[in-house]
Design a protein around this nucleic acid. Sequence first.
DNA 1: CACCCTA
Length: 190
Amino acid sequence: ASAPTSSQELAIPNDFIGCIIGRQGSKINEIRQVSGAHIKIASATDGSAMRQVTITGSPTSISVAQYLINALEMAKYTMQAASSAATVDLNMGFSQSTPTASTAATSMAVLAATTPAPTTINVHSPSTLSAIQNPHYAIPVSSLLGMKSLPVLAVHPAAASSLTQGLSPYTAKMTTSGVKKSERQKFAPY
DNA sequence: CACCCTA
């Protein structure tokens, strides 16, 4: 108990758990490594189409893990919304959640870009840790749900400018229709 | 579209 670890549990629908785990667990393992948190996904809950996910680690690790999971979840949610956009249109506020999703996905790339090694994300890299575990901002879980802009973006103005370039084609394509297949791969770079 | 990992 030398490390200030805590734990957080959240329920993920069965439809989303596949996206979060990824093929052969590639995505969840990536999340485990980049967040430094222990993530346990229980077997399918009988009766409720939910998988119990337990995240254990430092508060920061938990925040990062939850952020990544939320980003993937939101990406899938946006995709499903686009499928049934003919019925629900954008009145549910997806016009706001959509750019947030792209920001979240790109933030992962920012975290990855912070590491010197392009192949695998090294959690023990000092540069990565200083970026994630900066004591100046403790990421409250509540802000993750309301994700407006990630503090990381404020710390990396250069990265933010490159983000703007990457977001431009997104905004251009978000014309209520025509959002179907190729876009979702950009949402899930893992 | 599904992806099923690790304790």
